[in-house]
Design a protein around this nucleic acid. Structure first.
Length: 564
RNA sequence: UGCCCGAUGGUGUAACGGUAGCACAGCAGACUCUGAAUCUGCUUGUCUAGGUUCAAAUCCUAGUCGGGCAACCA
């Protein structure tokens, strides 16, 4: 279910409109920088599934390209084989496509540039700009120094070029143990920016790479690989998150080695933080591995596959990303903003159906048993083109337990002895009595007298129902926030898992109207007066339907009745 | 503490030297065959102190607070 192609944003009019990145790109296009080209890239590391935070970056990267007539590359930033796999590559492609973006021909792997990067490294060595360092990682840290004090030069720093060249080739040939040597850029051990204190460019790592296999035992570091990839691909605007801000001088240094004429530029923006969830891949992986959720696509996860399974339309996620904007301020966005975007789309598009999740039998005493009628129900009052459907109706209905009260509290407009309500699409009912289990005090049945719609009775409430004789028994999964607190990982080292919401998943048996029998996985509906639901893409089968709650409807009554 | 970045209602943002606006959330009301949606109204904000200027959220300086950096991770 992909609601539309790329999002439509305001075209590049004034260079001063929109967020700061849009302004920069617009200005560059206006002044003819990069020959007026706009080439961006989304460079995930295939070591986890994409989440809503990535969606923000994807919308920005692909959005800027689309808006300014450029292109956006999808690139697997796979320079560390220890955690990367093809499973993640496939999932990433699926998710980006699902979000509504198209990279065309421009799908790349960093690993495909390994040979080229190696050549650049050799070149750097020849120019005396890089050397083979023999410091252990412990020594390395000591020599690097601390922010307040300059670092110390490695004893290897002035190794002759020929020796560096020889060593580097032998490193590639596998003559040295992991970590025994590394290639370092020769920049400035006294720089106040730690990243410029002769950063490591290559490390020895005997790990099989999911793409290059055992071809390499030498892998480039992000700070070396990333700018090269951007330069190789002719990227113009390299957009990344704030934590890379201090890497920018190094990015520029590397880029200057290979693309001095028309270098790509890196711009940083704040990553997305959402209330009541965590966004780090490490933590999400942990939730999966420790089976605290059912998988990466658990509908409670902030992953794109989780949201897809939950029933969030991609167009809603894109609208949400446009709403949160792009700034350099580290913010915490209220989940309510996302849910609003989802409701807004679903309200317009989701067909209405009736479902009862806490069933209570209602007997209409003036309708004879065994008699089946049908009533026409509107599919979506927001969209007349969706027409109506026939819904079976009869003497015995299921209604929601919450829609009956033995003794009405203030402002309770629903069913209570003597009170009349409208039955959605099926006339009216006046409550004439009820049966109570003397032992438990539970209401076991409600009785009423039915009136046709033509009676036009004045009522203050409408309740939904399903015909007991025709109802489909289904499983419904009700979701609440994954964590109980707004910032589960606010405490640096306190265990965020202690804040997991034990009630984030509730499974109930409910009844739905027969029209839902045809629900295909992923199909979204509004269960009237309850919320938006979709057929679960993993577990729902025609003979055993399973629905996921996407998001509830706003509920003014819940707020009213809670205090009392 | 060294360097870098940032700060506008409860939240997310806009305003680019000239009336602080929008959305979410909240509250109140209208309407309603969904206590939904829709509509109306309301509450709440420029971190502080100086300076520049006819005029500062915007420019400058200092401070305060917050974030980032100190993996042979990305």
């Amino acid at each position: 279910m992909n609601n539309s192609a790329a999002p439509t944003s305001a075209p590049a009019e004034a260079a001063s409109a929109g967020h700061f990145i849009r302004q920069i790109v617009a200005e560059d296009v206006r002044t003819g920088k990069h020959g007026g080209r706009v080439v961006t890239r989304f460079p995930p590391e295939p070591n986890g599934y994409l989440h809503i935070g990535h969606a923000k970056a994807i919308c920005l990267d692909f959005g800027m390209a689309a808006e300014f007539g450029g292109r956006c590359h999808l690139r697997m930033d796979d320079t560390n084989p220890t955690k990367e796999s093809m499973e993640y590559v496939d999932a990433i492609r699926t998710d980006v496509r699902w979000l509504g973006f198209d990279w065309g021909e421009h799908f790349y792997y960093s690993a495909d540039y390994f040979e080229r990067m190696y050549e650049v490294a050799l070149d750097l060595i020849r120019q005396g700009k890089a050397y083979i360092c023999a410091l252990s990682s412990e020594e390395f840290k000591v020599y690097r120094g601390v922010p307040t004090q300059p670092g110390l030069e490695s004893p290897s720093r002035h190794r002759p070029v020929e020796e560096n060249l020889d060593l580097f080739r032998r490193m590639r040939a596998g003559e040295f143990a992991d970590g025994a040597l590394c290639l370092r850029a020769k920049i400035d051990m006294a720089s106040p920016n730690l990243h410029l204190r002769d950063p490591v460019l290559y490390r020895i790592m005997r790990v099989s790479h999911y793409r290059t296999g055992d071809a390499w035992c030498l892998y480039p570091m992000y700070d070396f690989a990333h700018p090269l990839e951007d330069a190789f691909e002719g990227i113009t605007h390299s957009l990344c998150t704030l934590e890379f801000e201090v890497h920018r001088p190094l990015y520029d240094w590397v880029v200057a080695q290979v693309s001095p004429a028309d270098p790509p530029h890196q711009y940083e923006f704040a990553r997305l933080n959402l209330t009541y969830t965590v966004m780090s891949k490490r933590k999400l992986l942990q939730l999966v591995q420790e089976k605290l959720v059912s998988g990466w696509d658990d509908p409670r996860m902030p992953t794109l596959c989780g949201m897809r399974r939950r029933g969030y339309p991609p167009v809603a996620i894109r609208a949400f990303c446009e709403t949160v904007g792009v700034t350099k301020y580290g913010s915490l966005t209220d989940m309510a903003l996302l849910e609003h975007a989802v409701r807004e789309v679903l309200n317009r598009t989701a067909p209405r159906r009736m479902a009862v999740l806490k069933p209570l039998k209602l007997v209409l005493e003036n309708i004879s048993a065994g008699e089946t009628r049908t009533v026409a129900a509107v599919n979506n009052p927001e969209d007349e083109s969706l027409g109506t459907r026939q819904v079976p109706f009869g003497r015995e209905l299921f209604i929601e337990q919450d829609d009956f009260l033995e003794v009405a509290q203030k402002k309770f407009f629903r069913l209570t002895p003597g009170q009349t309500v409208r039955l959605r699409a099926a006339g009216f009912v006046t409550c004439t009595g009820f049966t109570k289990d003397p032992a438990s005090g539970a209401i076991t049945e409600v009785r009423g007298e039915w009136f046709p719609a033509e009676a036009e009775l004045k009522v203050k409430a409408t309740i939904h129902w399903v015909s007991a004789a025709h109802a489909l028994a289904v499983e419904v999964r009700l979701y609440d926030r994954l964590f109980r607190v707004e910032e589960p990982d606010a405490d640096k080292d306190a265990d965020y898992k202690a804040h997991l919401n034990p009630d984030s998943l509730r499974v109930v048996k409910g009844y739905v109207e027969p029209a839902l029998a045809a629900a295909a996985p992923g199909d979204a509906f509004q269960f009237e007066r309850l919320g938006y639901f979709c057929a679960d893409s993993r577990d729902s089968r025609p003979e055993a339907l399973v629905f996921n709650q996407t998001v509830s409807l706003r509920d003014a009554w819940a707020k009213l009745s809670k205090p009392g």
